[in-house]
Every structure is written in C-alpha cells, then in structure tokens.
Design a protein around this nucleic acid. Sequence first.
DNA 1: CACCATGTTCCTTG
DNA 2: CCAAGGAACATGGT
Length: 283
Amino acid sequence: MPELPEVEILRRHLEPLLKGRTVRHVTVRRAKVLGKTPVRDFKRRLQGATFQKLERRGKFLLFKLKTVRAGDRGRLVGHLGMTGRMYLQAAGAKLPKHAVVVFNLGRRNFVFEDTRYFGRLTFDDRSLARLGPEPLGPEFTTAYLAAALKRSSQAIKVKLLDQSLVAGVGNIYASEILFRAGISPRVAANRLTLAQVQRVGAATRAVLQDAIAGGSTIPLDWAGEGTKDGWFYFGRTAETPDYYTERLQVYDRQGQPCPVCGTSIRRLVQAARSTFYCPQCQK
DNA sequence: CACCATGTTCCTTG
DNA sequence: CCAAGGAACATGGT
C-alpha cells in the first residue's frame, strides 16, 4: 500500500475512528513488528490508553496516546512496510491470516495486518530522527534540495528514495515525479541544473498532492472482502471510478505508449528496483 | 521453478 | 567519518 499519499489518506481515515477510543486489550501475534519494544512493555503502556491525535511523518504514522500513567507520553510509531494495512472491524469478526497486532476498543477491533511482516508498530522512534524534510512542508525548498543533491553522485531516481533527503517518496512516485519533471532517472543528482532541481521539487509536491487528492475521494474499508493490496495504486473495483486507475502515468507501464508523446515506456533497474520512464520526454 | 513486488536496515567496500 | 551497493527480512502473485 504505502508511500506518503497512501499513509496520509489512511491517517485522515483513521483519526476520527480512533480518537477518544480506549484500548481495552492488546494482542500481539508477531513480536517482530514491535521492534525493540518488548511485548510486555508494549502491552503495559497501551492497556487503558486512549487514542488522541494521529499524525504522519514521511511514511510513518504517529499515534498520540493518553496513557494511564502520568508522565508516560505515549507516541506509538507505525510503519506499513510493503504490505501493511490498518483498519477497524467488528470485535467478533474473523481476523485475517496475517493480523499482527490487534487492539480491542470495545465493540470494535483496530487491526494491523501485514502479510510480509516488514511493517512496524513500536514505541521506538529512532527511525524518525533520520528523516529529511516533509515534501509538502516549508523546509522542502529549491535551495535545500539543490544543496542536498550537490553532495551526491547517485542517480536522481535513487536519490529520491533516500528518506533522509526527503521523507515519504517511494518507488512508484519516484518514477512519476521524474516523468512529471521531464528529467531522466539516470542523471546524477549533482549534475542537475538549478532549473532542473526546481522542477524536481515542484513535481514532487504536485505528484504527492494529486495522489492525496485522488485517494481521499475513495471510501476505505479494508476489512471488507474484495479489496486488494494494489487498490491505491492500480486497483479497479466497483466503487473506484475509472479516472483513478489512470493516475499513474509511467509506473508499471513498460511497453505502453507515453501519455504525452506516445513513445514506448521503458523499464530499467536502479539499485535493484524498477524504474519506468519515457525516453523521449525525459532527457 | 523463475522472477517480481509500494520498504528499511545492516553489512561491506572504497 | 561518509557514500554507495548489495543482501536480508518474508510472503504471495504471475
């Protein structure tokens, strides 16, 4: 599921559902996702805690909790990894095969499901310290980006995936951003002109903002049957309008015509990840 | 069986 | 110390 737009959409969806709800009981089915937090500590801090705000930093969700013990400022950090999902379902409903952590909130359960177990739900917040600026925040300026890119000879596509450069861009939107900017994914970061850096910054904001706007129109109900992991990016269901499936211009469209010039979209591998681009539009 | 997949962290090499 | 590249993590789809 998850790059910045998907996490932001999930945050907006979950916050009103969780706010004011108190955790009655915690079930941990895969201790791995707690990271360094021991299961016993995790449960002790969460039992009786009440959800307050839900924030986002890059691809991380930050659950602000009012905990039972005074002075224990609860900040639970969530990350969806590659296949994580979070949703509420009736307390009596059957849990999915890969339910990893379940919070009972009374009549409903808040479920963290993660097929590949790459996700995290933990009180260990050290990952956050390594993040660069929010791409939709005031610190993500052309001046910042130019200075940061100057220090790297890595290909710009690979650099966009570096969470310490900018927090929240993943493999799908990195290709989309460079297509929008009209820049080849192979160009070394430190060889971009200032005008190109400016375009990368503007395209980053535009692509992410558009994705959030598009996804926010869709009702989320992952507890229901018939929804798939690819829902956000590619999915077509009875409820999703056609335009939504057209949102991605180049990702996973190898061999298809470029939506701008008709040239065949190409795939290449960089840092062991697929990149998609139009060889005509992106020089 | 082979290859691919929305992510992060750790280890090695230079 | 840093940058860069690759493997590991784990499961499922095609």
